[in-house]
């Protein structure tokens, strides 16, 4: 059974431009589905439709078998939502933030306290439990926001870039917890920029850019579909922008990272490694530049993402 079914979803805020355009996908029960895309791709808008915060402009969206335009309240009773925007009760302690959240979800006081103790201990919040939310760090607030949502049971959990601001230990601990929730039957819809996280956590991923969904598959299948591809990382000491331009002009197929900067290798995903190396060699000779770094590796999820987004960058 599908927890989410999206058909021809379109969303426009101004009636002119579609920020989400003709999306089609489904998420199976108990699955962890990763929704990947660059900034402004339409991830948060999609989550807002799925969580009934906004109405779609067109198409049909069913969450847990219910139409989002008709059964908003019923859907919201069964889902958990961690929004990208931080949210907290600024003048309550961490502990009281959790208690009041339990009250809002109408969980009996005894159960709330038991769950709170369990989560405080599991996510290492003991030291700040009596501190006001206004006085803790941004990362700690994010942790509180995440942990608070775990106070109640949900059949479907929406996580909009949940690990932003978290330290690596907290991040890993939360991702493992989400994995364990999925094993117990909770469906997880997860958006992230961090492709390592998606690789670690997700059963399937969808790649969205400019409001359109360009790929939906399991991480393994996506990697396999780019099996012949290789990722070349190169750094030169002179004018890397010029090298990027040259690669774009001369390469037949393949994608060059459009966000190149001086302190980061240029990334090229291609199935024509020797030809590409030749272009790089020519550039080094002509510009009397030195090679600072060169690496050729098998394509990872990050490279798949980069290639899909890059191919549709100018659309």
């Amino acid at each position: 059974m599908n927890s989410i079914e999206v058909r021809n979803l379109r969303v426009s805020y101004d009636g002119k431009k579609y920020v989400v355009d003709d999306l089609n996908f489904e998420v199976k029960e108990g699955e962890i589905f990763g929704f990947l895309g660059p900034n402004g791709a339409g991830k948060t808008t999609t989550i807002r439709v799925l969580t009934t915060l906004i109405r779609p402009t067109g198409g049909t969206v069913n969450v847990l078998g219910m139409d989002v335009t008709k059964y908003g309240l019923e859907i919201r009773k069964k889902i958990g939502v961690i929004l990208q925007q931080p949210s907290y009760e600024w003048n309550l302690t961490v502990e009281n933030n959790m208690l009041i959240y339990g009250t809002l979800w109408n969980i009996p006081r005894v159960e709330v306290k038991k769950k709170m103790e369990e989560l405080i201990s599991k996510f290492d919040l003991s030291e700040i439990r009596k501190t006001m939310a206004a006085d803790i760090s941004i990362g700690q607030r994010r942790r509180l926001q995440l942990v608070r949502e775990l106070m109640h049971d949900s059949k479907l959990l929406f996580l909009d870039e949940p690990t932003i601001g978290l330290d690596p230990i907290a991040r890993r601990s939360l991702l493992s917890y989400f994995k364990s929730l999925a094993k117990e039957g909770t469906t997880v819809f997860f958006t992230t920029h961090n492709l390592e996280e998606a690789d670690f956590l997700c059963d399937r991923v969808g790649i969205i850019n400019h409001g359109k969904l360009y790929a939906v598959d399991s991480v393994e299948n996506l990697k396999a579909s780019y099996e012949g591809e290789r990722t070349i990382e190169v750094m030169v000491d002179k004018d890397p922008i010029k090298l990027v331009e040259k690669l774009k002009q001369k390469m037949d197929g393949g994608v060059v990272d459009p966000s190149t900067s001086l302190d980061r290798p240029i990334k090229i995903v291609t199935n024509k490694v020797p030809e590409t190396m030749e272009i790089i060699n020519d550039y080094i000779r002509q510009e009397t530049s030195s090679l600072l770094w060169l690496n050729v590796k098998k394509t990872e999820l990050e490279d798949v993402f980069f290639k899909v987004v890059g191919e549709h960058h100018n659309e």
Partner: peptide
């Protein structure tokens, strides 16, 4: 205050 602290959007995503 609820807008500023993100609680408005959070509450709107809850069963209210």
């Amino acid at each position: 205050s609820d807008k500023r602290t993100g609680m408005l959007e959070q509450i709107f995503s809850m069963p209210f």
